[in-house]
């Protein structure tokens, strides 16, 4: 396979005094990827994105975008990159329209009224194009942020938590938009988030970082498909159920129990077998709840991160 590598990062490190915000990070993003960049608050996502966009200098490490060095070919690279970094900030004393016009001119793209209005329409702000951004709500600014990132039809779109502040409808719109951009337009999307669910829905590949260090990396299927699944069986008569399990070979999958629940580590095929066995023993299984290992894992590091 010879797929073009859009972002290539090796050993990227950023220190703020003693604090290591990003630690020896490697990233590989290929053309057409919707790349999920996951991590809890303070994991180093925004710091990484700032380095990718040359807003801050890495302490060490190498970065290439479109196979080119960011320091040497920044103009060429940035004419093909659109980005949102942290919260959406604009010239508050200018209208949404004027903001886009200015940013579009700087990107060297078409800033005709038609083009700008169509961008505003895409994010649902066309009715308020004349209002000063000062008068916008957070969610509206976030939408305008997306408009400015897409304005010059970039090949690579870097979005730092683009759905913060959006209502559920807005979140879904953004998700659909990202899918559209990736599937229909062949764009490469680098999407940072601290919500696993959000990334999981649309990403092709993802990486989870915490405290600046990579924890796991891979395609979404790979990460979700592990041999053993944690699963909780909810039963009516817990004592009898436990006895039945201990008497059988199911005992090897047993993990723990609480109230009327028993937790197991099982392969997917084993789940139905155990269910059948318990029913045969006359125990009513009221629910089988899979706990996906990635989610549990993510929660674990998220908790670790917020302490």
């Amino acid at each position: 396979m010879n797929i073009e590598q859009v972002i290539e990062v090796r050993g990227l490190t950023k220190k703020f005094g003693n604090l290591v915000a990003v630690n020896n990070l490697d990233l590989n993003v290929y053309r057409g990827d919707v790349f999920g960049f996951l991590g809890p608050n303070g994991a180093g996502k925004s710091t990484t994105i700032r380095m990718l966009l040359s807003l801050i200098k890495p302490t060490s490490g190498e970065m290439k975008i479109f196979g080119k060095s960011i320091s040497k070919d920044r103009k060429e690279i940035f004419s093909k990159v659109g980005a949102i970094v942290e919260k959406p900030d604009f010239y508050l004393y200018l209208s949404a329209y004027k903001n886009l016009e200015i940013l579009g001119k700087l990107s060297g793209t078409d800033v005709s009224k038609k083009k700008i209005m169509s961008m505003l329409e895409l994010v649902g702000l066309d009715k308020r194009y004349k209002s000063k951004v000062k008068t916008y709500s957070h969610g509206m600014k976030q939408r305008l942020g997306i408009a400015q990132a897409l304005l010059h039809d970039p090949e690579l779109i870097i979005l730092d938590e683009p759905t913060t502040g959006l209502d559920p409808q807005g979140m879904k719109e953004i998700r659909d938009l990202i899918i559209y951009l990736s599937k229909e337009k062949g764009k490469t999307v680098f999407l940072s988030s601290h919500i696993l669910h959000e990334v999981e829905l649309i990403s092709t590949r993802m990486i989870i970082i915490n405290k600046g260090t990579t924890q796991v990396e891979g395609t979404v299927e790979e990460l979700l498909k592990t041999d053993k699944v944690k699963v909780t069986f909810e039963v009516d008569r817990i004592e009898e159920a436990l006895r039945a399990v201990n008497e059988s070979s199911w005992q090897k999958g047993f993990k723990s129990t609480s109230k009327n629940e028993i937790n197991f580590d099982l392969t997917k095929d084993e789940i139905s077998g155990l269910n059948k066995y318990l029913i045969e023993k006359g125990i009513a299984v009221s629910a089988i709840i899979p706990v996906r290992s990635l989610e549990e894992y993510f929660l674990k590091i998220t908790e670790g991160g917020s302490k």
Binding site: L53, S54, L55, I77, F78, V85, L106, G108
Partner: peptide, 9 residues
């Protein structure tokens, strides 16, 4: 607004 200004070409 630096973030948007300085990530232009």
């Amino acid at each position: 607004t630096y973030r948007m200004l300085l990530t232009r070409p």
